[in-house]
Design a binder for these strands. Structure first.
Lengths: 232, 232
DNA sequence: CGATTGACTCGTACGCTGTACGATGCAACT
DNA sequence: AGTTGCATCGTACAGCGTACGAGTCAATCG
């Protein structure tokens, strides 16, 4: 019977109960809400990783029964979608609309993007496999507008955007997952040393150990941007 | 009691029964083997995706009971590791050792890498989250050696390798997942059209629809390689 | 030769998962 | 007072990974 919620659009809004007009509480707020569920899901994901998000555990944290969540959310998949997009919000610099420094604008947005995902290491691997939420679309729109302004030809525009997307995604996923397992890294290098006749070069350069992710990200980004629209 | 198998090293080998010396079968071959399990797992993954790989279903395909698999394999995770690495094998061009065309060698290897993963769309998203198997290490070794030969400074070598890694990973994951859902893409673009006041630029360029993945990959790769070691 | 061993397979069972279904409570409106 | 609709929860079910122990069969040993 009950028609369920299922706002469909975006993550927020939807609370319908009007604020109290007079002094006292007219209705006790429902204890659950989409916002609270999503925020708690993010916390749980941060703490336990993708595999650690279980509906029962999420409900426990919220102090509710597992099935209560399904009033606010269609299924577990949607929880991932909402948690993901909620983490990707971007407030563009106010300067950005009229900025002459298109390159700085792009670098700022992409570094913020990467930083946001690294703050929630589960998010990067989720992003390419799920629907594009509004927050990520805003970033793409900004990218498109800025590159266009920078003089990238219309014919190259989409390729340019996807190149930057690919680079950011790849860099962040890799960084997030390597970061989580220092022991494994050491073990891998150890194993490498034992097999140094097979992999002499990467063994010598200690590829698996001392990698300057942040530096490599900036460098690669510069290479890419140079190629896309050479600095004059 | 039984000490189990658990070869630990690599994917292959391990079969111990000697071939028949005389005319007739000396022992009936065990019906299961690591090779057969891994090959069947790859098939199942190709057909049903990551979520479709269940131990029981894998056993069904092999005509065995589910628990028989655990004699050959520690757990389900290991099945993923083995399937993944088995799909990343690379036979370098024989020319490559002495080749002067370092750029061609790298492009060839990276395009082959990407093509291998696209043939098994589940593999790309798995790669950055799992241990580095021997086949992927061979590719990294080749990359390192070739870039070194191309004149990349030792100090930049690791950054260069990871930049290429990031780009290939990101491009392949994105392509593999977008490729799987044409309907979703159309729906997204549809939704975009409805909201064109929010995303005018990407709506106009039809970013979500007509994207030349292969072309964008080649372009981005060229930009990156230009930046890493400019053509003389 | 019978007894033993080790490689290999499988049936059963347990705890955990996502979620369908229906019952319940409660505020607001008719 | 009765009805409606929002919100919550208990129970139940099918399916999952896999621990455990029993079973089979060839090779080996005494």
């Amino acid at each position: 019977m009950a028609a369920k919620r299922s706002d469909a659009e975006s993550k927020g809004s939807g609370r319908k109960s009007a604020p109290p007009q007079s002094g006292q509480e007219p209705r006790s707020e429902p204890s659950l809400s989409l916002e609270r569920i999503v925020a708690t899901a993010v916390d749980l994901l941060d703490a336990e990783g993708v595999d650690g998000l279980k509906m029962r555990r999420l409900a426990d944290r919220l102090g509710s029964g597992a099935m209560s969540l399904y009033w606010h959310v269609d299924n577990k998949e949607k929880v991932f979608d909402l948690a993901l997009d909620s983490v990707l919000e971007y407030r563009a610099l106010p300067s950005i609309v009229a900025s002459e420094d298109w390159r700085g604008d792009i670098v700022h947005m992409l570094e913020d993007w990467r930083a946001s995902m690294l703050r929630h290491p589960w998010s990067a691997s989720l992003l390419p496999r799920r629907a594009l939420g509004p927050n990520i679309l805003i970033r793409l729109e900004l990218l498109s507008k800025t590159l266009s302004k920078a003089g990238v030809a219309d014919a190259d525009l989409n390729a340019a955007i996807w190149s930057l997307w690919n680079f950011v995604i790849g860099a962040t996923i890799t960084r997030a997952n390597f970061e989580l397992s220092d022991d494994d890294k050491a073990a891998a290098q150890q194993r490498l040393t034992g097999l140094s006749q097979h992999y002499p070069t990467i063994e010598r350069s200690r590829l698996l150990l001392d990698n300057d992710w942040d530096g490599a990200f900036r460098k690669g980004l510069d290479f890419l941007l140079d190629g896309l629209a050479p600095r004059q």
